[in-house]
Design a protein around this nucleic acid. Structure first.
Length: 382
DNA sequence: ACTCTGCGTCAAGACGCT
DNA sequence: TGACGCAGAGT
DNA sequence: AGCGTCC
């Protein structure tokens, strides 16, 4: 789930910390990606018609392989060096959240069988998407695929997002690409959204720099973490009646959750019983991750052509011509970008970024006008 | 007037042929 | 699941 | 751009 409303909060309060970049500008960059997130999306959408998905002869789902394969090739062709991070054991505090998701899936399963009885095709598709779960097998399949492609894989001890952030902090990757905003809470210095959206064509890549966010919000990292906890995270409840805006105001005013708790009206705001905000804070601040020496070296190698044919064609029913062509693409892409990023080549045009602008389309013109009026109307920042 | 909440809704990949 | 729009209620 | 296909 990430952090509730953080995108909007940052768009409203730290717009300069977000920059639009071209997909192409990441040529030669090493990028960490949370694998489970991607797999989940693939399972939901790739080749799905009703409850049907892509499958091999044994009837096992192959949508995640198709999705992972083509997406990774797309990244490689763009000169991007992806490293995929897989989830380990979730922290204790997340169990509640996971239980919630589990029960939602159970509800969806009931809705699905009901829809099946009635025979409503749209409902069947809708509910079947909600029952999707990434299994151990899906993860293992994708690890095997990526290794065969010569793409590095890291198995995180706990949260993948936390490991991604750690790789970025230590300079092993340039940025973390995810749709999950808690990468920022984990302190990823540079964070990309929409890197793999139906592409650079529709939505530009949005790049966040944590240092700029802190600067613009006028907070230190510890305070930003507290802000995220108050806004609503996966690890604990938040305080009913306090959303992003109020949380930001309170943090600016009091500096920490402790001080806020001492100063707010507890009649008005019900503080959850035994609220484990300190543990949540610790999970963001010092998450369980592998250091550079504890995980395998991050290396991009040549694809194992035979292995790919065996796995994809023989075991999973992929079309051999497509796979062969795809392997050629991988080889070409790797040769092209094997020298790495030529800084001299890119420097003059490195900043293709432009500060984000508020949309001025006809639909949103009204909203923008209101916002401008608001800003002009005496909302002063210190 | 502003904010939070809760409701529904929608869509969520990538490719190539036409 | 999240993002967005809209209704409603609380401050 | 729209639409069917990938397995």
């Amino acid at each position: 789930m990430g952090i509730k409303g953080l995108t909007k909060l940052l768009a409203d309060n730290a717009p300069k910390a977000m920059k639009e970049h071209k997909f192409e500008s990441y040529f030669g960059r090493k990028i960490a990606i949370d694998a489970s997130m991607s797999i989940y999306q693939f399972l939901i959408v790739v080749g799905r018609v009703g409850t049907d998905t892509l499958t091999n002869e044994a009837g096992e789902v192959t949508s995640h392989l198709q999705g992972m394969f083509t997406r990774t090739i797309r990244l490689l062709e763009a000169g991007i060096k992806p490293v995929y991070i897989f989830d380990g054991q979730p922290p204790e505090l997340k169990k509640q959240e996971l239980a919630k998701r589990f029960s939602k899936r159970a509800d969806a399963t009931e809705d699905l069988s009901e829809a099946r009885e009635i025979g409503n095709k749209e409902d069947i598709e809708k509910f079947s998407k909600r029952t999707v779960k990434v299994t151990k097998q899906h993860n293992e399949d994708c690890k095997r695929l990526l290794r065969l492609m010569g793409v590095p894989v890291i198995e995180a001890p706990s949260e993948a997002e936390a490991q991604c952030a750690a790789l970025c902090k230590s300079g092993q990757v340039y940025a973390v690409a995810s749709e999950d905003m808690d990468s920022l809470t984990f302190g990823a210095p540079r964070f990309l959204r929409h890197l793999m959206d139906p592409s650079s064509r529709k939505v530009p890549v949005m790049e966040f720099e944590i240092s700029k966010i802190l600067e613009e919000l006028n907070l230190i990292m510890d305070q930003f973490i507290d802000l995220c906890i108050l806004s609503g995270c996966d690890y604990c409840e938040s305080i009913r009646g306090i959303g992003g805006q109020t949380a930001l105001k309170l943090i600016r005013q009091h500096g920490s959750i402790e001080n806020i708790l001492e100063n707010i009206n507890k009649e008005r705001y019900q503080i959850p019983e035994n609220w484990p905000y300190e543990q949540a804070r610790e999970l963001f601040k010092n998450p369980l991750v592998f250091s550079e020496k504890e995980h395998p070296e991050i290396k991009w190698g040549a694809p194992d052509e035979e292995g790919l044919i065996t796995f994809l064609v023989n075991e999973n029913g992929f079309n051999i011509d497509r796979v062969t062509k795809a392997i050629e693409k991988i080889k070409t892409a790797k040769n092209k970008s094997s020298q790495g990023r030529l800084e001299s080549f890119f420097k003059p045009v490195a900043n293709t970024s432009t500060p984000i602008k508020r949309k001025e389309t006809s639909e949103s013109a009204k909203e923008t006008a209101i916002k401008k009026a608001k800003a002009a109307g005496g909302k002063k920042k210190k």
